[in-house]
Amino acid sequence: MSTFSIFLALIVVVAFLLVVVIMVQNPKGGGLSSSFGGGGTQQLGGVKKTTDFLDKSTWTLATLLLVLILLSNVAINRGGDNLDSKALDADATTTAPIALPDVPAQTTNDAEPANNTPE
């Protein structure tokens, strides 16, 4: 298992945890849900310590996700040491395209079948 695969697995796990933590949080303010009459029911069961924990864990997971994404760039296998473009190299040899033989086009009338015998 490569280093990039490990980073990729960690990124998926952290992203899933971040989605779960965000979905668990209670909405803080009047947003769209309070416009439709849901504003009074959002305060039921809200605990200040839980909100602080979820808020801190959201920022921690978001920062961890960003760091993992940036570090995974270092771990990508680039496949070789030569990263230069051959399009910019003046000494690079190119192959000519293969010339196909000319094939005469056959035109036939759709109403009459093609007859190759002379009359």
Rank of each mutant, 00 (worst) to 15 (best):
G46P: 01
L8T: 14
A9K: 11
L64G: 10
G31R: 06
V12Y: 03
G80N: 12
W59R: 06
I11G: 02
S72F: 01
F36E: 04
S35L: 15
V74S: 02
L70C: 00
L10N: 14
A15N: 04
I22D: 05
G38C: 08
L66P: 13
K56D: 11
M23N: 05
V74L: 12
R78L: 13
R78I: 11
A15R: 09
G40P: 02
V24W: 07
S57F: 08
I76L: 11
L66V: 15
G31F: 11
L64H: 00
G29Q: 10
N77A: 12
G39M: 02
S72H: 03
N77E: 15
V19L: 14
G31A: 05
V13F: 12
L65D: 04
G37W: 07
S2N: 12
G40I: 00
N82F: 11
F7A: 01
G31E: 01
L54S: 00
S72W: 07
G38W: 01
A9S: 11
N26P: 06
L70D: 04
N77H: 09
F4K: 13
G45T: 03
L10W: 02
T51C: 00
W59Q: 08
A75M: 06
S33G: 07
T51A: 13
N73V: 15
G40C: 03
G29D: 13
V47Y: 05
G29Y: 03
I76Y: 13
G29E: 12
V47M: 11
V12D: 02
G38S: 06
Q43T: 13
G80D: 13
L83K: 12
A9V: 08
V12Q: 09
L61M: 00
L68H: 04
K56Y: 10
K48A: 12
V14G: 05
G31S: 04
L65M: 11
K28T: 07
M23V: 14
S33V: 09
G80C: 02
L65I: 05
F7L: 08
